[in-house]
Amino acid sequence: MAFRRGGDTLEKLELIYKGAEAYLFRSTFLDTDVIVKYRLPKPYRDPLLDRRIRRDRTILEARIIARIKELGVPVPTLYMVDPEKAIIIMEYIHGIRLKELINHANISTIETYVREVGRSIGIMHSAGIVHGDLTTSNIIVKEDTPYIIDFGLAQYSDELEDKGVDIHLFLRSLESTHPRFVDRLFKAFMKGYEEIVGSRGKESILEKVREIRMRGRYVEERKLRKQ
């Protein structure tokens, strides 16, 4: 596959990740290492619905990345967006996923990173943006800075519900992949979050997270509420 736009040709597209929703290619663009994200058409969707979803998600993702960048949160730089082809070309972040780092780096270093992530999410939430798929796989640490990536499911929202889902998903990813450090890391995350949103903001989001868990799958917590 080759994508062309004007005179710029993407060199040596290398498929690096086959996700369910999109393929990621590594390439160079204007002499820079880039990621090319291509949202795949899905044969099981009505064609109009499919185009709508792919186009809307491409535009939304690009807008959100640009907006977050403006706010000073470390995210990849955008180089090109083509909504009709459902393609985004962005900076390749040379680093290590937080998910892998957790099992190798020392825990207090990880705590620092996670607190930074908490701040980033606090900034996003204060600006009315939610990530939608916040897991430790979607954070890459480069030169001691945690970059948040994959805004494929991000959206503009000021609903406490949506923000709560972000925190809930992050907590769930800590629980499922790093059970030993859940409490410490979540505390560090919330500390960073609180630095941005204040203690009232933190309390209301934690209350929401508890509510989401009681509604959904976390029976043990539901029992606690009854007592």
Partner: peptide, 10 residues
């Protein structure tokens, strides 16, 4: 196809 919301969260 009408314009109704498609909501997937994670």
């Amino acid at each position: 196809l009408l314009n109704l919301p498609y909501i997937v969260k994670g």
